[in-house]
C-alpha cells in the first residue's frame, strides 16, 4: 500500500526557511557496499510507485547543498521506498554519507527522465562500470524479465569496487568481470571482455553500457562498426532536472538534447562523448576546492572531538 497519510506529511514538514512544504525523505536503511559506496533505502512512496528502470531523482540533502541527479537503483512500491547507490566523490556525496538511518534528505524529486525501452531483443549484453552498475541493475532485471538472455560485464579499478555482484548475477544469465589491477576477474577493461565475447559468440542483439563517460565512449566505438544497437545512460551536470537550466545539454546526432528530459538514455553511437567529457569538467576546480575544504574541516572536527573525548 502506498503510504501517503496527510498526518505523516504534516509532522515531517521541513523547516519553513525553505519555503515550506518540502516533503523530507527519511533514510530507512543504509549499508556500505564497497569502499566509498553507500546504499540508501529512502522513503519516497510516490516515486517508488512510479519509478521505471532508467529514471533518476534529484536529491537535495539540506537547504544549502547542491541538487544532484542520482539514478534509482531499485524501488519497492509496497514498502514505499527507493534505493540509491552513491559513490563518495565530492563534498555533496561525502556529506550525504554522514546521514544515518532515521535522518532525512530535504528533497528527493522524481522520478525524472524517460524510462528505458524494455523489449525482447534476444541476447543482451549489460555493461556496468563503477557507480554505473547501480543504474544498470533495474535495467538488467527488466530485460531479463522481458525474456532476454542477459550477459553482464562488470568492471572496476579493483575487486572491491566491482559493486552489486550478487544483485546483478540474480538479474543475469551469465556474468563476466574485469578489473584494472587484475584483482578480480580478468585484468583489463570491460571493452576487452566485450570484444572477446563478440569474438566467441558473435554479435549480441543489444548492448547497454552505463559507467564513466570514457567507458561508454569505448563501448560505443567497439559496437558502432559492428552495428550492434547500444544504449548508454548519461550523468551530466544538472540543476533542476526538469528541463529548465539546459546545463545538461549534450549533442546526440546533430541535435542538442537535454539529458534530464530527453534522456538520460541515448543511442551511444550518436552521443558526442568528447563534448560530454569536457562539459563534465566544467566545475572541476570548484569541486576539488570544496572537497578539500570539506575534508580539512572534517579532519579538524574529528581531532577536536578526540581531544574533548
Amino acid at each position: 500500500m502506498r503510504r501517503r497519510g496527510s498526518g505523516r506529511r504534516r509532522t515531517d514538514r521541513a523547516p519553513t526557511t525553505c519555503g515550506g512544504g518540502v516533503e523530507v525523505h527519511k533514510i530507512v536503511a543504509k549499508d556500505r557496499i564497497a569502499p566509498g559506496f553507500n546504499r540508501y533505502v529512502v522513503e519516497a512512496p510516490e516515486i517508488a510507485r512510479k519509478h521505471r528502470p532508467g529514471q533518476f531523482v534529484m536529491v537535495l540533502i539540506h537547504e544549502h547543498s547542491e541538487r544532484i541527479p542520482l539514478t534509482i537503483a531499485a524501488s519497492d512500491p509496497a514498502a514505499g521506498t527507493i534505493t540509491l547507490v552513491v559513490q563518495e566523490v565530492g563534498k555533496t556525496t561525502m556529506e550525504m554519507a554522514k546521514r544515518e538511518v532515521g535522518e532525512s534528505f530535504l528533497a528527493v524529486v522524481g522520478p525524472l527522465g524517460t524510462a528505458t525501452h524494455i523489449d525482447k531483443f534476444g541476447t543482451v549484453v549489460c555493461i556496468g562500470g563503477g557507480a554505473g552498475i547501480a543504474p544498470l541493475l533495474p535495467i538488467a532485471g527488466g530485460l531479463k524479465k522481458a525474456g532476454n538472455k542477459v550477459l553482464s560485464i562488470l568492471g572496476g579499478r579493483s575487486a572491491d569496487l566491482v559493486i552489486l555482484r550478487d544483485e546483478m548475477a540474480a538479474a543475469s544469465d551469465e556474468m563476466f568481470y574485469t578489473t584494472d589491477d587484475g584483482s578480480f576477474g580478468r585484468k583489463g577493461l570491460v571493452t576487452h571482455a566485450l570484444a572477446d565475447l563478440i569474438a566467441e559468440r558473435g554479435n549480441p542483439d543489444f548492448v547497454v553500457a552505463i559507467g564513466p563517460a570514457v567507458m561508454m565512449k569505448a563501448v560505443a566505438e567497439l559496437t558502432r562498426p559492428l552495428a550492434i544497437p547500444t544504449l548508454c545512460s548519461l550523468n551530466s551536470i544538472m540543476i533542476d532536472g526538469t528541463g529548465m537550466c539546459g546545463g545538461c545539454r549534450v549533442t546526440v546526432g546533430d541535435e542538442a538534447k537535454f539529458v534530464c528530459v530527453d534522456g538520460p538514455e541515448f543511442d551511444a553511437h550518436k552521443v558526442d562523448f568528447d563534448l560530454l567529457i569536457k562539459r563534465l569538467r566544467t566545475y572541476l576546480p570548484e569541486e576539488q576546492a570544496a572537497r578539500e575544504r570539506y575534508l580539512t574541516d572534517h579532519a579538524c572536527r574529528a581531532i577536536d572531538g578526540g581531544n574533548r573525548g
Binding site: G20, G21, E46, I47, V109
Partner: peptide
Amino acid sequence: LKRMGVEVRAGYVVGKTA
C-alpha cells in the same frame, strides 16, 4: 497562503510524480 489553509507540496513534479 499556508495560514489561509493552502497546502504546499514542494519537490513534486506533476507529470512525473503523478
